[in-house]
Design a protein around this nucleic acid. Structure first.
Lengths: 273, 273
DNA sequence: CCGGTCCATTCCTCCAGGTTACCGATCGCA
DNA sequence: TGCGATCGGTAACCTGGAGGAATGGACCGG
């Protein structure tokens, strides 16, 4: 078995996502026959069929689904290798900290202040993005502040900064607004805001808050994300949902001392506040 | 920045390990100029120098050290992608469980028996190797039984099966042999057996036990590794060492239901015994 | 039955990864 | 000091294969 090439995996992944050789070829900036040939060659080398093709439709086989997942991991690791090496080569050492806008629960200043007191502290550059965990895996960041949906944590080491029960966000005029606590069943009749599957399609928080104030929807969120809270909204703790954690995360194989120092500082800053 | 190719990373890694272009080229089965050219091109593409070369010696730069680590992770992921896809494509579904010989603490039969009672159980094939965690990362196994040196656990999910204090292994005739417990300080004067840095150089356990019986050395090991124990040896719990864990591990991004079932079964088998 | 869609095949071009041969720098050694 | 050995880089050439354009062939809707 000869070694897999990144080009082959990238081509395969494009087809796996588009399920259409023509569109995938356009996305890759090549002609369709070259793409067909490369994918066929990949199948021959692996000794496995990756797609069920008819002249009308393309579908992944079971093996194709496995490769789609593994190829994503592998290409992210390749990308991370390049970016981390370039950053290590420049004489401008800094620590890239990724987070969603507003995702720090207002704790960032305390964390950064504590980190600055560490002996080997580097300048910290905060980079915002919709998917901080992906930025970690692709080497676009050294550490990230994120909330813990366990499915996004594969391959990352984490330090839990705080955990708390989620809260319902309601208009002050809402019938449930002044209850001391709520259960999911209490919200059964409400138009509960659902997080979209595609992180890119996620609404900005300010927009969501506006919709809630208008009575168009209600939401259940980690409490930290709701601060500061608009005057016309109120939050009520949920009692039957698992607590949500705010985490500091970094690549599992990281040996970076600055990252370790940041984790130390963040834990100290939180517990001390 | 164009995308990194696996060939470039493999070539770079060979030079990084040999620190010698000629030997690395032989290992790769190519001529030395091709290797020099490719590494130079890699440096140009990354915009970073990876090696300090003189006409007499080759050394890694800081960026080179970063890439050496990252390249290893990335290539392991590529290899895993190929192997897992091939296994998914064959119509012979089985679960590959990696472990060191004797590393199961005698728990394997109970675990396998419990797993067989799971609804979607697959045939389990046990594969032995010196570095089970590496076999996981490279896709040569679906799950592994291993003891927890935390540095080997990067990128893996784990289920702790049992934890226990390490024990000292002594000849029955040893002055300390009949103490109820020991501290590391008690062993200060002994010729304590050290685990070699290279896992390949590790002695077989039976050999180590023989040396202990002869009075040539003493060892501190997880208790499970000492069973069954020779008549002429005795084990004494250590009180000032962190407990050692026996873990079931699998790749962090695995979504395999059989692996999940194995984790469930293993946990149940241990807690029930 | 015809036109449109979509993947595969064929044939050609050209680049990049490989080879051999040679060069320049550096060290050990007489 | 000068000779030979070691080692990485450079030059010139060759070739496999990645990519493009044109075409084929299967399948669908109308």
């Amino acid at each position: 078995m000869d070694r897999l090439e990144t080009r082959e995996l990238a081509y395969f992944l494009a087809v796996a996502e588009e399920l259409h050789f023509g569109r995938a070829a356009i996305r890759l900036g090549i002609a369709q026959p070259a793409l067909s040939k490369t994918v066929r060659q990949l199948e021959r080398r692996l000794g496995v069929t990756l797609f069920e093709r008819t002249s009308r439709a393309v579908a992944l086989t079971e093996a194709g689904r496995v490769l789609a997942r593994e190829a994503g991991v592998a290409l992210a690791a390749m990308s991370a290798a390049a970016l981390r090496t370039q950053r290590a080569g420049t004489r401008d050492p800094r620590l890239l900290l990724a987070m969603k806008p507003g995702g720090d629960a207002g704790l960032l200043p305390a964390i950064l202040a504590a980190y600055d007191r560490e002996p080997q502290a580097l300048p910290v550059e905060v980079v915002f993005g919709a998917a901080p965990s992906r930025m970690l895996r692709e080497g676009q960041a050294d550490a990230a502040l994120l909330h813990a949906p366990p499915d996004e944590l594969a391959g990352l080491d984490t330090e839990t900064l705080l955990t708390e029960a989620p809260v319902a966000v309601l208009p002050v005029s809402h019938p449930l607004a002044h209850r001391a606590s709520l259960r999911m069943a209490d919200l059964a009749g409400e138009n509960l805001h659902r997080k979209p599957a595609d992180p890119g399609a996620m609404k900005p928080l300010s927009e969501l808050m506006h919709l809630i104030a208008l009575g168009r929807t209600v939401a259940v969120l980690p409490r930290v994300l709701t601060r500061p809270l608009r005057d016309d909204l109120i939050t009520v703790p949920m009692t039957d949902l698992p607590p949500v954690a705010l985490l500091l995360a970094w690549p599992a194989h990281s040996t970076s001392r600055p990252v370790a120092a940041l984790a130390r500082a963040a834990a100290a800053a939180i517990s001390g506040s």
